[in-house]
Design a protein around this nucleic acid. Structure first.
Lengths: 155, 155
DNA sequence: ATGGTTGCAAAGACTTTGCAGGAGG
DNA sequence: CCTCCTGCAAAGTCTTTGCAACCAT
């Protein structure tokens, strides 16, 4: 989902395309990491100081409603946003830096069928989030552990 | 995870077992549906009016921290709680009534391996939630649609 | 006995809303 | 032009914190 696509979707749904909204959308799309509304507001402000926090909230609500961005509920009491493909996808999230990798083809069809058969539920969708540490943060962690060990040896 | 197990876990972790906490835990365990903190507070109050909302929040935080209940992030801006088994499990959630079915053996090992190989992430856990309508709510919906149709025919 | 716990009230954080002025289509 | 959008301030909601009294161990 890129900027022109999102703009088109906004227009098609009767929303206006303002400089503020473009700044907000661009910031979301350019960020590889999850952004809370306030983190997003801070980022947007740097690029375009004439955007208020309220507009960020309102824009995010519209984008979320139209499925143009993805909402990820993180451990704390708020949720974060991330750009995403239009089709169904799931997430791989770095618990350290918040980086998100989207992936498609989760292949949960069989599991879903079994659950339907066993529970009588009608399943309409799912959310699958993997949590871990991205390659970069994994290395950082390794370095941190190594230097901690060094300090111990010096005593 | 039943009441005695949870009580034991609380004691083992240096927390005291008070009547309020027991009332809260019982209410969570007896509810098949997701409960937001305030919904839980309302339920607990009926069974035991001498429990304050603050205590519900504090108790939930402890239970969550010890992994004695499960937190599910729902669509709105809050999270809900549900009793759960001690081992790894995932959820099947009724979008209508909030009923939750826990299931184990999600068999995501292969998918996880592929993701690790392709992204370099170190994956430590995941969350898989299926959303749909439970058997009961599916029937209610059918009845509702049927009666709506009846009303239209009467015009 | 003593240290965690409770409930109240107050503070805090986050999000939404009302409104007047302003800009997009 | 008309309608939707913006930003400010205020209100609203949810959650946490300070504190004195209380209770589990």
């Amino acid at each position: 989902m890129n900027l022109p696509e999102i703009i088109a979707q906004l227009r098609d749904n009767g929303h206006k395309v303002t400089p503020q909204r473009i700044a907000i959308i661009k910031t979301v799309l350019e960020s590889p990491e999850l952004l809370t509304p306030s983190a997003l507001y801070e980022k947007v402000k740097k690029a375009d100081p004439g955007v208020g926090a309220v507009t960020v909230y309102r824009t995010l609500n519209i984008l979320e409603e139209l499925g143009l961005v993805c909402v990820v509920h993180t451990g704390d009491n708020t949720h974060s946003y991330i750009g995403c493909p239009a089709e169904h996808h799931d997430h791989l999230i770095c618990a350290d830096c918040g980086k998100v990798v989207n992936f498609t083809h989760c292949n949960l069809g069989l599991l879903e069928k079994r659950l339907i058969a066993e529970t009588g539920f009608a399943i309409s969708e799912h959310r699958l989030d993997f949590y871990g540490r991205c390659e970069k943060c994994g290395k950082k962690r390794f370095v941190a552990e190594a230097s901690a060990r060094t300090i111990v040896l010096r005593e």
